[in-house]
Design a protein around this nucleic acid. Sequence first.
DNA 1: GCCGAAGCGCAAAGTTGTTGCATGAGATCG
DNA 2: CGATCTCATGCAACAACTTTGCGCTTCGGC
Lengths: 160, 160
Amino acid sequence: MRSHPALDEIDMMLLDLLQRDAARTLRELGEDVGLTPSAVQRRIARYKAAGLISAQVAVLDPHRLGPTVLASVMLTLVRESMEHHKAFTDRMRAAPEVQQCYLIAGPWDYLVMLAAKSPRHCSELGNRLFKSDENIKRYETCIVFDTIKAGLTIPLGGGR
Amino acid sequence: MRSHPALDEIDMMLLDLLQRDAARTLRELGEDVGLTPSAVQRRIARYKAAGLISAQVAVLDPHRLGPTVLASVMLTLVRESMEHHKAFTDRMRAAPEVQQCYLIAGPWDYLVMLAAKSPRHCSELGNRLFKSDENIKRYETCIVFDTIKAGLTIPLGGGR
DNA sequence: GCCGAAGCGCAAAGTTGTTGCATGAGATCG
DNA sequence: CGATCTCATGCAACAACTTTGCGCTTCGGC
């Protein structure tokens, strides 16, 4: 007995449609997958209840909102205890300028994506979030010159 | 004469609310910013027309959809002509497993975030997208152990 | 075969999103 | 200094969408 009866092909299609455009109506979605609006709505309610859909957000265009500087930061900690990791991750979660933060394998411990309002702001962020932390051994910042692609889309095409 | 009369404080609040949760009703948003639903709806329509809101998407939880492997890839090209860059970026844009792709400063040319269905799939992706490209000098893949934070939120708090 | 669970379509009911219109606040210009 | 024009708002009517109850069918045990 599984808590979730497994997702069928229609579920995959719906989730894929939704992660591309969540502003469409139930009728449109229904036509695409071959269901009535009410059936679509019940499925989507199921996804939300199950936590499959964790959020529904508007994606803003950074460069139309005024100057925006994106940067990637790779870093390593000095001590690797649970407490030190938690202290760091809590700070990342709390900082609104931190778009993404990943614990990664390899020479670096973390990869962080920053969104700042100016080069100066970006530098300040580095100081505040990383330089002033005694437990960060080293960090390397790479300014983003251009965003080729940005999204959080998960591949759902070929069945899973 | 500016193409866009500049955004006031209410615009910033609305955009900030929307990039956090785009599923709220116009009435709720209106109460938060002190406007009627129709005023809110007209502002949002303006944002969309101006391209400030580039998409409205559902964010899926990768790990509730079955095993998912995220990875970051840093790479450098051999030749840096416009054509070579375009060939590469076109491939990135076309690949559904490429979540994000940035042109960056520093020792590497690009940072790419991948979403794969398994370690094997991830390795295949590396071969298909990078290893088989004669114009990629070197690339380094870091598997993501844990996602601390993921989003595309832009800081709008302190006025802009 | 019988029975319960689950999903669907249909249609009514309830909300929400959208639009026309009149008002009022600024800005521009004579 | 006032006339005028533009633009955003609130209100109210309207249209569209979402949600829910109900009966039906299907599928899997028992």
